[in-house]
Write a protein that binds this DNA or RNA. Structure first.
Length: 511
DNA sequence: AGCCTACGCGCC
DNA sequence: AAAGGGCGCGTAGGCT
């Protein structure tokens, strides 16, 4: 019998069961949870689970009505704003309005969703997708709670080494100021290096006309300001995006705690809010340091998207290549006279919708040698260009075209989007499945303790902060989770989804 | 002052 | 002739 769980605006948990909604204590919830790990219905884990966690409750499984609604509506062709982007007021009905029986409303909505799921004819796959998004919603809360271990002193030292010393708040650090001075000196007049317009105008006065100040446009220009400008841009980026202000705002008690938005991206990828958590710069990854006695297990899926393409299309040659440890090298041996870079450029170009430039010839080779794989992408692109929708392996559906009268350029852009959607979205399902399976395995092995906690996840990469002595076991759990995710999505397949996985004290060393 | 867009760049 | 997908975020600069 289904149980609905939620939290009122005043923080009181409620339980809806056999037609009745009543207040419930955290102890009672824990007892029911321990008694058999039911699959709780929950209007929104993002809204309710943090309160339950603060009370020591750990849910194993749930069905998140907001995520389910997003998945089902998109499949039906009437997308709602995603659960992540929905403003808090839209949850009022379920969590804050004490007059309505929130439990009864949720139970009704669930029944309606089950009916609609059955009507799709794909209740099995969509059910897996909803389960995956739902466990992601639970884990997202737990990951924010755990936080990424972050050594502020190391971060500070890295900043000082790169940027020089901080002078006054709001002023440039010394190294950055020196570069700004050199830029001005090179132009012989005042220029604000932070202003693209200003920089373009300065170059124009020296008879150099640039399309933009992007670094790849600047790179080939012969002018004394270019070198300091490129260095300034790189360091300025570090200063503004992950400098001392970021450190003060985001790192507390040795932890960086971003807010995760599972399936916050249309393709199903996660997004984060605040702190730019999915863009932790490489040069700062040595500041991510395990606590004493602990280690970081970092696993990332190698060449995930091309392998996804092979498994989705079942192209025989592509699947054979995707059985190799280095898929690009295998493709190169088979079809590119051993030129690995050609295989990579071609395959990435095919998945992103590139048509010209250096990818043109490799693309033709791929079309000749791997027609089924390329056809899958071409079909997705054509569907998008015509205004249709495409779906991932588990049925996540892209939004319908938004233009009423698309220009040819807009049609092509949408074709590139739908072409990429099937691959990026299915890759996201594979990684999300791995994540949910890993969460369950770690909990069964170590319980709700700090012995092993998932602390970071981005697209095709997961980080576990665990007791150093458990590193090998945790690595085995990650590898088992990857195999299980592969079976879940593709059954028996020749395609190998390999992981680069290792344990180390810092993120920099483990990646 | 607050809001919005364009730009540019970091990550996958 | 060139033609690459998905994001978040800080700054500049223009608007109300």
């Amino acid at each position: 019998m289904t149980r609905v769980i939620g939290v009122r605006g005043d923080g009181t948990p409620w339980l809806h069961h056999v037609g009745r909604t009543s207040e419930v204590t955290l102890d009672e919830l824990n007892q029911i949870e321990q008694g058999g790990h039911p699959r709780w219905l929950i209007p929104s884990a993002a809204a309710s689970y943090p309160v339950l966690r603060r009370g020591g409750v750990r849910l194993d499984r749930c069905y998140d009505l907001a995520h389910a609604e997003s998945v089902i509506s998109a499949f039906e062709g009437t997308p709602v704003a995603g659960p992540a982007s929905a403003p808090p007021t839209s949850l009022t009905l379920f969590t804050e309005d004490d007059d309505a029986d929130a439990g009864a409303v949720a139970a009704t909505q669930y029944a309606d969703q089950q009916r609609r799921l059955a009507a799709t004819g794909h209740a099995d796959r969509l059910g897996l997708l909803i389960a995956s998004d739902s466990v992601g919603a639970l884990l997202a809360v737990e990951m924010t709670e755990a936080g990424i271990p972050w050594d502020a002193a190391i971060h500070d030292r890295l900043l000082t080494e790169a940027l020089g010393v901080q002078t006054l708040p709001g002023a440039r650090p010394s190294r950055l100021q020196e570069l700004a001075d050199r830029i001005i000196e090179s132009f012989g007049r005042p220029v604000n290096p932070d202003s693209p317009q200003d920089v373009l105008a300065a170059f124009a006065r020296d008879d150099i006309v640039l399309q933009s100040t992007r670094k790849w446009h600047l790179a080939g220009v012969d002018h004394p300001a270019v070198a300091p400008l490129l260095e300034y841009k790189e360091l300025s980026r570090l200063h503004t995006a992950n400098g001392w202000a970021w450190l003060r705002e985001w790192v507390r008690d040795g932890r960086f705690r971003p807010e995760y938005l599972p399936a916050g991206v249309v393709t199903g990828r996660w997004a984060t809010r605040g702190g730019g958590a999915l863009q932790i710069p490489r040069r700062l990854r040595s500041a991510v340091v395990a606590d004493p006695g602990k280690t970081l297990v970092v696993a990332d899926a190698a060449q995930l998207e091309p392998r996804i393409l092979a498994a989705l299309s079942r192209d025989p040659g592509m699947m054979r290549a995707a059985g190799a440890e280095d898929m690009y090298a295998a493709l190169a041996t088979e079809a590119f006279d051993g030129r690995r870079d050609q295989a990579k450029v071609g395959l990435l170009g095919a998945m992103y919708g590139q048509v010209g430039g250096g990818a043109a010839r490799p693309l033709q080779v791929l079309r000749d040698r791997y027609p089924r794989a390329l056809q899958l992408l071409e079909d997705a692109a054509r569907t998008g260009e015509r205004g249709g929708v495409v779906r991932t392996r588990l049925g996540r559906t892209c939004p319908p075209g938004s233009e009423r009268d698309p220009t040819p350029a807009q049609e092509r852009a949408r074709g590139r989007f739908t072409r990429n959607f099937v691959v990026q979205g299915t890759a996201s399902e594979w990684a999300g499945s791995l994540l949910g399976i890993l969460r369950q395995r770690l909990h069964r092995a170590y319980g709700d303790t700090d012995a092993a906690r998932i602390v970071f996840y981005q697209h095709d990469e997961v980080m576990v902060h665990c007791d150093a002595a458990l590193a090998d076991d945790v690595i085995a759990h990650v590898e088992a989770a990857a195999l299980a995710a592969t079976r879940l999505l593709f059954g028996e397949t020749e395609v190998v989804f390999g992981l680069d996985v290792r344990a180390a004290r810092t993120y920099a060393e483990a990646h």
